Simulated scan of single mutants.
Amino acid sequence: MFIRNERSIKEFMQNYPVVSTLVIIHFILWLIIDFLRLPIGFYIWNMGTAYNFFIAQGEYWRLLTSTILHADLMHALFNSFSLVLFGPALEQMLGKLKFLFLYFGAGIIGSLASFIFEPLNYASVGASGAIFGLFGVYIFMVMNRKHLIDQGSAKMISVILAISLIMTFIQPNINILAHLFGFIGGFILAPLVLRNVRPYSPWNVRQHRYHSDEDIQFDPNRWKKKRRISPKLRKNIFWIILGFLALLGLFSRFF
Score class of each variant (00 low, 15 high):
110 G>Q: 05
111 S>R: 12
111 S>V: 06
112 L>S: 04
113 A>D: 12
113 A>H: 00
113 A>F: 02
114 S>W: 01
117 F>Q: 09
118 E>F: 02
121 N>S: 13
122 Y>W: 12
123 A>Y: 13
123 A>C: 03
125 V>N: 04
125 V>A: 02
125 V>Q: 05
126 G>M: 03
126 G>R: 08
127 A>Q: 02
127 A>M: 11
128 S>H: 07
128 S>W: 07
133 G>W: 04
133 G>Q: 12
133 G>E: 11
135 F>E: 08
135 F>R: 08
136 G>Y: 02
136 G>N: 03
137 V>C: 00
143 M>I: 08
146 K>R: 15
147 H>Y: 09
147 H>C: 00
148 L>T: 11
152 G>D: 08
153 S>N: 05
155 K>Q: 05
157 I>K: 09
158 S>F: 06
159 V>W: 07
159 V>S: 10
161 L>I: 08
162 A>K: 00
162 A>V: 10
163 I>M: 13
165 L>M: 15
167 M>E: 15
168 T>L: 01
169 F>C: 05
171 Q>M: 13
173 N>T: 10
175 N>S: 14
176 I>S: 09
176 I>H: 08
177 L>I: 15
178 A>Y: 02
179 H>K: 14
180 L>W: 02
180 L>A: 07
181 F>I: 12
181 F>M: 09
184 I>A: 15
185 G>L: 12
186 G>F: 00
186 G>I: 01
189 L>T: 09
189 L>W: 03
191 P>V: 11
192 L>A: 11
193 V>R: 02
194 L>Q: 09
194 L>V: 02
198 R>S: 14
199 P>E: 02
201 S>M: 10
201 S>L: 06
205 V>D: 05
205 V>F: 03
205 V>P: 04
207 Q>G: 01
207 Q>K: 10
209 R>G: 00
210 Y>N: 11
210 Y>E: 14
211 H>Q: 15
214 E>W: 02
217 Q>K: 12
217 Q>D: 09
218 F>Q: 09
221 N>S: 04
223 W>Y: 10
224 K>V: 00
227 R>M: 12
227 R>G: 15
229 I>R: 12
231 P>K: 01
232 K>N: 11
232 K>F: 06
232 K>D: 11
233 L>G: 01
233 L>W: 01
235 K>N: 06
237 I>Y: 10
237 I>M: 12
238 F>H: 04
238 F>K: 04
239 W>V: 02
239 W>H: 10
241 I>F: 13
